[in-house]
């Protein structure tokens, strides 16, 4: 299964056009990222679900620091009325940099995500939830099951996702990290006595395609910076990044100095956190990911310095694998 990620930092009319191209090139759905400084992913989902009756829309991801579990359950149930069986909800600890901007400290992320998923799932399945603090009964019924995907990067969150998620949004693009992630999810699945084939294992890739590598790197730089700054120490060490450079990137990102970012962020760091390349290289990566056990590939922003061209290139990759499946 293939999907696109759209970032609601663009006007809705532009997302409509890109969504329309996504539909044309053969994706099954669209994930919308959530950041407090962008348009609301929830309201964007409402709009796009009405515009594209053949696509499912996932919100990836809502975090329990900014969205109370009851709000997430309410949103999911309402969206299921707008588009039954076409709504996925992603829940995760949230992007550290965005949370910092909102003055929120990301404390006890594992516990917060686990509790949130438990509450949201119970409300969606039973229509009510009760514990020592919360007593809630929905006044309406969700119209369909809404699968809950867990957004994860680090080992412990990936294992938790394997234990409790209907799907896992693995927020890596680096092949070594994607391999590490599969093993962690498998461990979680085994610990919970579940089966890995019951889980939608999603590689949520950051893509920048184009013929000119320097332009592709430039387009990917802000995305790479967010990934690096949101990552834990485990991830930084695994990729062999210099903590001092990472701290510099974090400081620059906080003040939004993009020109300085291009000077400080090493191209190797961008390549380690995003996909930079052409059609053949992307085919190789996707084939490798399917072999590792991934069941869904998300082609995520920025796509490339020339979006229309990059989307056509991604379309070629999708077509190649669809023909491959048909041959089998």
């Amino acid at each position: 299964m293939f999907s696109f990620e759209l970032v609601p930092n663009s006007p809705l009319w532009k997302l409509e056009i890109i969504g329309s191209i996504a539909e044309e090139v053969g994706v099954d759905g669209i994930w919308l990222s959530e950041h407090p400084d962008n348009r609301s992913s929830i309201l964007t989902a409402c709009h796009l679900l009405k515009i594209f009756p053949r696509l499912w829309i996932g919100i990836g991801v809502l975090n329990p620091y900014m969205f109370h579990p009851l709000t997430i359950a309410q949103v999911a149930a309402t969206l299921s009325e707008i588009a039954p069986r076409r709504v996925y909800i992603g829940i995760g600890a949230g992007d550290r940099t965005s949370l910092e901007k909102a003055g929120i400290r990301r404390s006890h992320p594992l516990k917060k995500v686990e509790e949130c998923v438990k509450i949201v799932r119970e409300i969606l399945e039973k229509g009510s939830y009760q514990d020592e603090e919360i007593h809630l009964r929905l006044n309406f019924r969700p119209r369909s099951k809404v699968p809950i995907y867990i957004g994860a990067q680090g080992g412990r969150m990936l294992r938790l996702a394997g234990k409790i998620g209907d799907g896992v949004l693995v927020n890596h693009t680096n092949p070594a990290l994607l391999e590490f992630a599969v093993n962690e999810v498998r461990t979680g699945v085994e610990e919970a006595n579940r089966r890995i084939d019951k889980l939608d294992l999603v590689a949520y890739l950051t893509i920048s395609m184009g013929e000119d590598e320097s332009k592709a790197l430039k387009a990917a730089a802000p995305y790479s910076a967010y990934i690096i700054c949101g990552a834990g120490r485990e991830f930084i060490e695994r990729l062999g990044m210099d903590p001092k450079v990472v701290e510099d990137i974090r400081r620059i990102l906080r003040i939004g100095d993009w020109i300085r970012l291009y000077q400080v962020l090493p191209p190797d760091y961008i390549k380690a956190t995003t996909f930079i390349g052409g059609v053949e290289e992307l085919k190789e990566l996707v084939a490798r990911l399917f072999k590792l056990g991934y069941t869904q590939i998300v082609f995520g922003s920025p796509f490339g310095p020339r979006i229309l061209k990059a989307l056509k290139m991604i379309g070629e990759v999708i077509k190649y694998f669809e023909e491959d499946i048909n041959r089998e």
């Binding site: 006007p11 515009i51 229309l308």
Partner: peptide, 25 residues
């Protein structure tokens, strides 16, 4: 391509953007 690749799409008047999307789709 120039419009879709631009980081300044918010500068496009909304009614023009919506009309382009409607015509595209």
């Amino acid at each position: 391509e120039i419009i879709l690749s631009s980081p300044n799409a918010d500068l496009v008047p909304d009614e023009v953007g919506w009309s382009i999307s409607n015509k595209f789709r």
